[in-house]
Design a protein around this nucleic acid. Sequence first.
DNA 1: AAAATAAGTAAATATTACTTACCTAATAGC
DNA 2: GCTATTAGGTAAGTAATATTTACTTATTTT
Lengths: 197, 197
Amino acid sequence: MEEKSANSPPGKLKIAGAMRTLLEDRTFESITIAEIAATAGVTEGLIYKYFKDRRDILHHVLKEHYQQFLVQIDRDLQGIDGALNKLQKIIWSSIERYANHRVFARIILLEVRNSEGYFHSEAYALVKQFNRIIIGIINEGIAGGEIRDNLPPAYIRNAIFGTIEHSCLNRIFFNEPVSTADTAKIITDLLFQGIKR
Amino acid sequence: MEEKSANSPPGKLKIAGAMRTLLEDRTFESITIAEIAATAGVTEGLIYKYFKDRRDILHHVLKEHYQQFLVQIDRDLQGIDGALNKLQKIIWSSIERYANHRVFARIILLEVRNSEGYFHSEAYALVKQFNRIIIGIINEGIAGGEIRDNLPPAYIRNAIFGTIEHSCLNRIFFNEPVSTADTAKIITDLLFQGIKR
DNA sequence: AAAATAAGTAAATATTACTTACCTAATAGC
DNA sequence: GCTATTAGGTAAGTAATATTTACTTATTTT
């Protein structure tokens, strides 16, 4: 049975909400089960009714965020033609997400990749799904002659997301605001044209 | 007094060595103090004589790795003229490091950035030092007309390291071998020329 | 050689993730 | 409409493990 957040029991919603709140300005490692329970207003035991362990809560929160993100990306891409135009929009949308959803950025960029379990989570399945979409667009661009045909698509994807992530990470660490429009423009220009004069 | 690894007490060396060994195929989170002590052949108490806490051992190991890396980079750059040639060599050297020093890659790409303490560590000071070198080379390239003058240097740096890291991360996760030469060639080409046809 | 400091140990304590046994309210089946 | 079953929830434990403390032994310094 698909579990929609709408019909999730109130306790589960409160637990996930508490994790989100606490991640706003704390690292995952520093957040204790006792704190989560207190913030959620439930007992510690209940947490283990809904989640396998502490990390499972994190994966759950990421999954929900990523679902929203994919819905938004899908919408953002509608009506856009051309692989480069689509990539440009994806760059913009991704930066916008990181800039306006610090918790999402924190989790995916810093907190999950260091555990084996993540790669078997539902959240990671969504990441792979997004990846396939990107690779599809890149291949479309190569086939259509918009994108160079002597670069492996996976590297192009790595360049796009590596650059975005590195650019957003520092901002997140030091709580600096990110101008989505400016950042997206610079990164798109850099990746499309290269750095060489 | 500067503490050289040469004159570190044997216990401290064994502890750092144990951490390195265990990180070879385990995540930091999963490594316990008891295990470190057992692997090192010392008692748990001794660990707290030399290190503030568990994470401090990690920072210490990273610092030692990074020191080696900086020495190597310095050597690698000798005799190379031109900003782009230097950047190309730095790309190659960085990939080579990640490819051949999995523990180093693990620590810096996955294990430290999620804790506040890292940004006050000696290891991070070395990272900042390396960053200044890179920005210097980029500025040199802009001044000399080799590199476009309408891209902020920090973004160029982000693109270089973001792309390298993303390209090496997956390989590390899934234990795939990395061909330094091929990877460096592709990334350099991609970043220098851009992805647009 | 005495004093001081560094290296190292063993056992206690403190923290915190996770379990167990239980209660209560809702709900499905007859 | 009564009963069995399950879902939501609690409180008090247990177990794992990071960190401290008080102490012993070796090494240096004067």
